[in-house]
Amino acid sequence: MATAPGPKLKVATVSLAGCFGCHMSLLDIDERLFDLVELVEFDRSPLTDIKHCGPCDIGYIEGGVCNAENVQVLREFRANCRTLISVGACAINGGLPAQRNHLPLSAVLDEIYQSGPCIATGCTIPNDPELPLLLNKVHPIHEVVKVDYFIPGCPPSADAIWKALNDIIAGREPNLGHGLIHYD
């Protein structure tokens, strides 16, 4: 990775309906993180604990959209990030959470909280106003906002993330060859 010609790029990251695996895979670039932090600084991210996204160059989104809060956060990222990257299977096609999509939401909630095995009698579906409301279906993020680039994988390997970030920072479209492009 080349040295930074100007001010550092601002990068924000978030996991929506994801498992943080794509963040772990970002950390898996290991010692290349030293090169990366020469070029970028992190805004909102689980790595900084900043709660809201300010104006950024790159938004790194993991996970699909399964509830109202995910939609709000995704829109905040789109409004603030010049380039938005959809990272991993869940952000790209809904992934594991989207496997509830062929079931009615009420049936899912009923089975999990009321009628399923190992549920104590008298349990109810959580209804705290603090809890974000679930969407009827889980959606990939490109069905909600415009997405500039995609890095597929479950998770994408550290090498795939490193190659794609290098391409994007250099102003190129990510080009992942055999072995780096994976959907699993």
Binding site: H102, H142, F150, P174
Partner: peptide, 17 residues
């Protein structure tokens, strides 16, 4: 899809049953 470098399914998903 790997061969043709499909990075995203691009369209809205049907999620059929």
């Amino acid at each position: 899809a790997y061969e043709l470098k499909m990075m995203t399914p691009h369209y809205d998903h049907f999620f059929p049953d």
